[in-house]
């Protein structure tokens, strides 16, 4: 359960970026991309944001989470499948000769601030 400290990191980054843009008010929303294999649980992250975020004065900010799947590249049937979790075999043909790519992202994508 490290989502709480990740929320802290997110809010620090958001604050820093808003300051840089010369906006010292609050944000309307934060859009975060969480890869399915990033080790960050989206539900826990939202929960941590709602509790810690409001404690830190981000009550009015909406958290938008976009989850990115990973890709399973099968060396046997050459199918590229989107996978929601770590897999040890190709979802299509069952071959274990696979490579998993992507899904490790954990980014603050954008911040919406009042015009």
């Amino acid at each position: 359960m490290h989502e709480l400290s990740l929320v802290k990191d997110l809010l620090e980054l958001a604050r820093q970026e808003m300051d840089r843009a010369g906006h010292n008010g609050t944000a309307e929303s934060l859009t975060v991309i969480i890869g399915k294999l990033s080790g960050v649980n989206a539900d826990s992250f939202r929960f941590a944001f709602e509790t810690y975020g409001s404690e830190m004065g981000w009550t009015k900010t909406r958290l938008i989470i976009i989850e990115h799947p990973a890709r399973c590249l099968c060396q046997n049937c050459h199918e590229e499948s989107a996978v929601e979790e770590w897999t040890l075999s190709c979802p299509r043909c069952g071959s274990e000769n696979i490579r998993i790519e992507g899904g490790r992202e954990f980014r603050l994508e954008s911040i919406t601030i009042p015009d």
């Binding site: 990740l6 990191d9 970026e17 954990f106 980014r107 603050l108 954008s110 601030i113």
Partner: peptide, 10 residues
């Protein structure tokens, strides 16, 4: 207004 950040949270 939308600020595009695209930075790792960490």
């Amino acid at each position: 207004m939308e600020l595009i950040i695209a930075k790792k949270v960490l």
